[in-house]
Amino acid sequence: MDSHVIATQPVHDAHEAHAHAPYLRHHFETVEQQREASSFGMWLFLLTEIMFFGGLFTAYLIYRNWYYPAFVVGSHQLSIVLGTINTAVLICSSFTMAMGVYSAEMKRRKALVGWLLATIILGGVFLGIKADEYHEKWEKHHVPGLNFSVQDFTHPTDAEPALPLDMAQKTQVYFSLYFAMTGMHALHMVIGISILLVLVVKAWGGAYTAGHMTTIENFGLYWHFVDIVWIFLFPLLYLISRHQ
């Protein structure tokens, strides 16, 4: 057994090639350690996001089973065309983000900036379409609490079946969840785009194409996560029994 109180090892060990990289923070031993720690930290953060949206999905599951007819007619009020376009837009933005990460890995500064800008634009398009949908809900009096009327569900003007007043009231639960879920998702998009704007400026200055790209990688993880949430929201909110 070694008998020093705290045995030490030589500070300069054989493979300290990156030891003095400017982005290596003082409390990390190696660049790999730093990269893996921040990637792990990001995943833990996404874990909290899973549980954050998890609460909403649980509520959705319960109420959908309780008030299925209300959920069907509520869902039919949403525009499937806009919903599908938005899904495609978000998948595109995930792709551009992934390509952004790839450009950073390849150390191509201009390509990185380009892909990030594309991601921002696609994110903006998504939010624009979303805002248009919200506006339409407002006009149709489908915003629970603020501006709501059961008129469309008790006396439908289109081919939808009329609901008894009791069940028609329950469409408020559907729309509450619709706004809570898509609203939380949109909030994540807004935060994401704000961060992207900063990243673009820094990327233009070459911050992520000099070998250190953890920030871009981690932001990519966040963006893809937001995409995944939408991948679930789309069928759950827009596609309930479209065949009826």
């Binding site: 109420y63 408020q172 639960v173």
Partner: peptide
């Protein structure tokens, strides 16, 4: 006044 927990709205 959204209606996730409010029994009057079905919550």
């Amino acid at each position: 006044g959204i209606g996730v927990f409010d029994p009057a709205k079905g919550g």
